[in-house]
């Protein structure tokens, strides 16, 4: 799939993954790459950007095996952004699907 199209909406996907609860990089990378066709690394620049915007915050937590993990948490600002943009995206997708679907043939409504 065209990477330009993907790029814009991946931020939103990461926010949505964090809505279910705090998580760490490796886990998020796996969850994202399992569902969307992207490299595992892609999630890290996105997390950095989201953190600098203040829509996610980070903290360190001990793990049973190995060094402490950096956890990411969705802030209130992030939750607002997610809710607003999710609705926008779903609406937009509906509109695009309508135009693209073969049955409709791209004809305008009558």
């Amino acid at each position: 799939m065209n990477s330009q199209i993907k790029k814009g909406v991946l931020d939103l996907c990461v926010l949505a993954l964090l809505e279910k609860g705090d998580s760490y990089g490796y886990d998020l990378a796996g969850n994202l790459a399992r569902k969307v066709e992207v490299a595992d690394g892609t999630v890290y620049p996105i997390l950095r950007k989201l953190a600098s915007e203040g829509v996610v915050s980070t903290y360190l937590q001990e793990s049973q095996n190995g060094p402490p993990r950096k956890y990411y948490h969705l802030t209130d600002a992030g939750r607002n952004k997610l809710n607003a943009e999710r609705d926008e995206w779903i609406k937009f997708c509906g509109e695009v699907n309508e135009i693209l679907s073969k049955g409709n043939g791209g004809k305008a409504d009558e």
């Binding site: 760490y24 990089g25 490299a39 690394g41 620049p45 095996n65 190995g66 993990r69």
Partner: peptide, 30 residues
């Protein structure tokens, strides 16, 4: 940290590096 997590799951370093994607591209995204 990503490497360490993968290694503790029993994956090889090469495998993890491969799935992380091209380092040049990743740097560009950063």
């Amino acid at each position: 940290e990503h490497f360490e997590e993968g290694i503790s799951e029993g994956r090889s370093e090469e495998e993890i590096a491969e799935s992380l994607g091209d380092p040049k591209e990743l740097a560009m995204e950063f």
